[in-house]
Computed example of a mutant assay.
Amino acid sequence: MNTKLLIIFVLLSVVIGSIARQCYKCTACPRPFKGNEGGVGKVDVGDNDYCQKTIASGIESRDSGGNDCTPIDKSKYCCKGDLCNGATTVTATMKLLVAAASLLFVAQFFQ
């Protein structure tokens, strides 16, 4: 019984965390980017909005990409997720892998 409560708690945490999403916002963002440096803010985004990171002349900027963000080869990246425009590709991939493994575990557990 305690295991089921734990799983329900984790799922609720994931759902609640996905409701309120934010993107990092900065112009000429510091490198390496950690998200807590001076000049880095956060902006609330809607359910269908993207976060984006653009790179122009070696300068990185981050902001909301709206609901029609279109990636451009190695100069504009778009993602959907809380503060995902601060993550490296490896971090975003790991989050997706953990989420998929959790869903598989829950599906097996409740059969």
Score class of each variant (00 low, 15 high):
residue 4 K to F: 11
residue 4 K to Y: 10
residue 4 K to N: 09
residue 6 L to T: 09
residue 8 I to Y: 10
residue 8 I to H: 08
residue 9 F to Q: 11
residue 9 F to Y: 13
residue 10 V to H: 07
residue 10 V to M: 09
residue 10 V to C: 09
residue 12 L to F: 14
residue 13 S to P: 01
residue 13 S to Y: 10
residue 14 V to T: 13
residue 14 V to F: 15
residue 15 V to K: 13
residue 15 V to D: 10
residue 15 V to E: 14
residue 16 I to S: 11
residue 19 I to E: 08
residue 21 R to S: 04
residue 22 Q to K: 10
residue 24 Y to A: 02
residue 25 K to Q: 13
residue 26 C to M: 05
residue 26 C to P: 02
residue 28 A to H: 11
residue 29 C to L: 00
residue 29 C to W: 01
residue 30 P to E: 02
residue 30 P to T: 02
residue 31 R to A: 10
residue 31 R to W: 10
residue 31 R to G: 00
residue 32 P to L: 05
residue 32 P to T: 01
residue 33 F to A: 03
residue 34 K to N: 09
residue 35 G to Y: 03
residue 36 N to Q: 06
residue 36 N to T: 04
residue 37 E to N: 01
residue 37 E to W: 04
residue 39 G to H: 06
residue 41 G to C: 07
residue 41 G to S: 15
residue 41 G to A: 14
residue 45 V to S: 06
residue 47 D to A: 11
residue 48 N to E: 15
residue 48 N to W: 08
residue 48 N to H: 12
residue 50 Y to N: 06
residue 53 K to F: 02
residue 54 T to G: 05
residue 56 A to F: 07
residue 59 I to C: 04
residue 60 E to I: 06
residue 60 E to F: 01
residue 60 E to R: 07
residue 61 S to A: 06
residue 61 S to T: 07
residue 61 S to P: 04
residue 61 S to V: 05
residue 62 R to M: 03
residue 62 R to K: 12
residue 64 S to V: 03
residue 65 G to N: 03
residue 66 G to A: 05
residue 67 N to A: 12
residue 67 N to Y: 12
residue 68 D to W: 05
residue 69 C to M: 03
residue 70 T to M: 07
residue 74 K to F: 07
residue 75 S to V: 15
residue 75 S to H: 07
residue 81 G to P: 04
residue 82 D to M: 03
residue 82 D to V: 00
residue 83 L to M: 04
residue 84 C to W: 04
residue 87 A to W: 06
residue 88 T to K: 05
residue 88 T to G: 10
residue 88 T to N: 08
residue 92 A to L: 15
residue 93 T to M: 13
residue 97 L to N: 11
residue 97 L to M: 14
residue 97 L to W: 12
residue 100 A to R: 12
residue 100 A to V: 14
residue 102 S to C: 14
residue 103 L to G: 15
residue 103 L to H: 07
residue 103 L to T: 12
residue 104 L to G: 14
residue 106 V to A: 11
residue 108 Q to K: 13
residue 108 Q to M: 15
residue 108 Q to S: 14
residue 109 F to Q: 08
